[in-house]
């Protein structure tokens, strides 16, 4: 089997605290993520999902275990600067609070920040900035001041800033948690687009089921361990297990499960609302026949 894009082996992490008996937030976690995949990492607060993101981006070093990105071990200490930059350029990260990740006072200057750090020639930066701003639908705001934009717009600027480094993978660490429904919708469609159209690997950390439903694959973490891994349809089958770890399945799926339990035969996937509507419509037709 070919080398996966990201390979995580027996990863554990314990935050260093004053009291010695701090319990690990990640316990012997193993995971493989292929290039171009759209993976949602689900879990309640404190399940270890944000720690996982920080480990992949080398903000933290694991207590034990290994992470390989494109076959390269990134958990070694004293990595050379060029290698570190190369890694951070390959795997970009968008954080939760839109206010705390924008650096410049003008939108386009902020988007240029990454490529500037990488020493990209001026003319090339200009081209990239214009292109990525168009990709996230924010080109007309190029000259605006970030603090006057809405949360959703700021978050799309942050995405553009990462895209401008030409990453192969972007990690979204609860990037929609502080947004209103409109902002969330815009950011989600931007994320979907860059995965589907540009083939960028997406690792999306979230606790919104409706958002996770869009992914190719869902990984559920609870108490630092992986408890479920599979397609949304597979993961949503485990309604009780999800509820135990504080997660709720989408309402449409919940309804289908309830109907099935009442003895109604509804066969097929029930991930999106369209799926659910199709199932109910079809089964009512069958009943009529």
């Amino acid at each position: 089997m070919a080398e996966p894009f990201i390979k995580i082996e027996n990863l554990s992490y314990t935050y260093e605290e004053e009291d010695a008996n701090a319990s690990p937030v990640l316990k012997e976690l193993s995971l493989r993520i292929e290039k171009g995949e759209f993976v949602a990492v689900l879990g309640h607060n404190g399940s270890g999902k944000s720690t996982l993101a920080k480990l992949i981006n080398m903000i933290l070093l694991p207590t034990s275990g290994k992470i390989f990105v494109k076959g390269k071990d990134i958990t070694i200490e004293n990595m050379r600067d060029e290698e570190l930059l190369e890694l951070r350029k390959t795997v970009g990260m968008v954080f939760q609070n839109p206010d705390n990740q924008l650096v410049a006072t003008v939108v386009e200057d902020d988007v240029a920040f990454g490529p500037e750090n990488l020493g990209v020639p001026s003319r090339k930066i200009r081209e990239r900035v214009d292109r990525v701003l168009r990709d996230v639908g924010m080109l007309e705001y190029a000259k605006h001041e970030p603090h006057r934009l809405s949360g959703g717009q700021k978050q799309r600027i942050a995405i553009a800033g990462v895209l401008a480094m030409l990453p192969e993978c972007i990690i979204f660490d609860e990037s929609t948690a502080m947004l209103d429904p409109l902002g969330r919708r815009d950011v989600m469609s931007a994320i979907e687009k860059l995965n589907r159209e540009q083939g960028i690997t997406v690792i999306m950390i979230t606790h919104y089921m409706e958002e996770a439903a869009v992914a190719d694959r869902i990984v559920v973490l609870d108490d630092g361990k992986m408890i479920l891994d599979g397609t949304p349809s597979f993961v949503f089958e485990h309604e009780d297990r999800l509820r135990e770890c504080g997660l709720a399945i989408p309402q449409g799926t919940e309804l289908i499960h309830k109907l099935r339990r009442a003895g109604i035969s509804l066969e097929g996937e029930c991930v999106t609302l369209e799926d659910c509507a199709d199932l109910i419509e079809r089964s009512l037709e069958n009943k009529g026949n």
Binding site: K258, L273, C276, I280
Partner: peptide, 30 residues
């Protein structure tokens, strides 16, 4: 979401009265 789903079903000609907003209610009606 559940209200959206009942709206969809209504659009497809399934007779459901409007204003469903909990899963339990939708279940009872369907």
């Amino acid at each position: 979401q559940i209200t959206k789903l009942t709206m969809m079903l209504r659009e497809r000609g399934i007779e459901l009265d409007s204003s469903v907003y909990t899963v339990e209610e939708a279940f009872e009606k369907i």
